[in-house]
Nucleic acid binder design. Structure first.
Lengths: 256, 256
DNA sequence: CTCCTGGCTTGACTCAGGTCAATGTGGCAC
DNA sequence: GTGCCACATTGACCTGAGTCAAGCCAGGAG
């Protein structure tokens, strides 16, 4: 896995300069990377004040990985936590016999490491070229100890994840294949909306196999149902995604 | 729903007496209910020091409800959070057409209200006569604001829940009916172990229908598989539960 | 005691989605 | 360009779990 690293604070720190206090002034020119961050408002960092952001920025390393790169592996000690800034990531668990369950897809703004546990509960690898802001789990944990409001935000994000996981339990336990696919497309549309604004075009950076492993279906079933929804004019299949034609129909199918 | 209420601090508070400071001395006689609490070590409260425990005790109301009583309902505003001290609770989501997904069962020591959200994400009702320690969500939230270590504990419990939910996603998405039943029995055995110690006897306070709705199966399938496991001498079906005979075999089936 | 009733079990049959196999397709290395 | 490979689609057939229906059993009401 080839990773491009750049120590965020290097430019200033390597020259031995103190961090410019100007950066804290809202009208000043941006001097820390977070100021330019396109997903800040979506992410954990939104809970931070300007001086805290500078502190966090000093702890961060930005990383860039290519498609298929592994970020971390299930059951391995958790060394880093990540804030995805661009790209997309597949999160999955493997059974000993090779069966796979995708537990989620991370998009820009998503945080990996909510649980702060010793070992990774799942594996993560990039679906497309991906950028992330990476923190040592220790540094991060210490930082958290001094920032109860950040912990509160972390907890609220984890609660939201839990709620999504429970919705997914309903999908996997009690919905038909067609409903699963519709719910997947509507759910993904809603998530892209936070990143890109609302579009009927839904990018699908993952393969049909990944979708199947997320929905508890086979590739063939996913493919057949996408074809059927397209034949019935609910969607159009386009390169690397779908275009939603009949959102109301899909929402009815997906209805929680 | 008939509920028995008892304001925990009533005995002392109603007499206008200050809380006896003696209660804080580890060797003194117990004077707050928490001291007698049999699930304290399992629960959130374990994160609290003696004086905090007294504070929490003052906020608490103990409630007792009969089987089938509703604790709270999905989508209703969340007024209370609960610490289950005895009994068992079914947590579930309903689809508009009546399909049901059980998202979990709460046992003594479990906390309901981890997410601190405005609305309940699921409904909860008692499977058996149940006791709980109940707190107003507001009081609780304020209390939490002043106790970062409690928040940390809450977060770690929520993370654990999330991890269980992800394991359940694997079960629902990628496992056969037999594996699901085995995983359910082993999982429940492990949870009872925390409450009662390790026994091959696993109480099943829920119906086969509940188990089916938890595992994404029908009653009939659950029943058939329990019968089959019994015929094959992996378990014995006893009133209100099962006795595990071949734990190794079940664990092999359930293996994550 | 008898009669309900709700939960559990069992059997016969069905079908949604899985399996297997063939073919299509687009991007990339050379 | 050609060949390769991973992904996607489609068809024919199969099967694990669902559906429907009947009967059993224990506990509570009267």
């Amino acid at each position: 896995m080839e990773v491009t690293l750049r120590k965020k604070a290097d430019s200033a720190a390597s020259m031995g300069l103190p961090q410019p206090v100007l950066a804290l002034c809202p009208n000043s020119k941006a001097t820390i990377n977070c100021d330019k961050c396109r997903v800040r408002a979506l992410s954990l960092c939104d809970a931070l004040g300007p001086s805290e952001l500078v502190e966090l920025d000093r702890m961060a390393t930005t990383i860039s990985v290519g498609a298929k790169a592994t970020l971390f592996e299930q059951d391995q000690p958790c060394e880093w936590v990540y804030n995805i800034t661009a790209g997309s990531v597949r999160l999955y668990k493997l059974l000993p016999d090779g069966r796979r369950q995708v537990v989620g897809f991370a998009l820009p703004g998503d945080f990996l490491g909510l649980s702060m546990s010793e070992k990774n509960a799942f594996s993560a690898d990039a679906l497309t070229p991906t950028n992330a802001c990476r923190f040592s789990r220790n540094d991060y944990s210490n930082f958290l100890d001094e920032k109860p409001h950040l912990l509160r935000r972390l907890h609220s994000m984890a609660s939201h994840e839990l709620s999504l996981a429970q919705d997914q339990m309903v999908i996997l336990g009690r919905r038909t294949a067609e409903e699963r696919v519709a719910a997947f497309l509507i759910g993904l549309r809603n998530r892209w909306t936070r990143v890109n604004g609302n579009h009927v075009h839904v990018p699908l950076p993952m393969t049909r196999q990944d979708i199947g492993d997320f929905l508890g279906l086979t590739v063939e079933t996913v493919s057949r149902l996408m074809t059927r929804l397209a034949r019935e004019k609910a969607i159009v299949i386009v390169p690397d995604g779908v275009r939603l034609l009949d959102v109301a129909r899909l929402e009815r199918l997906a209805e929680i």
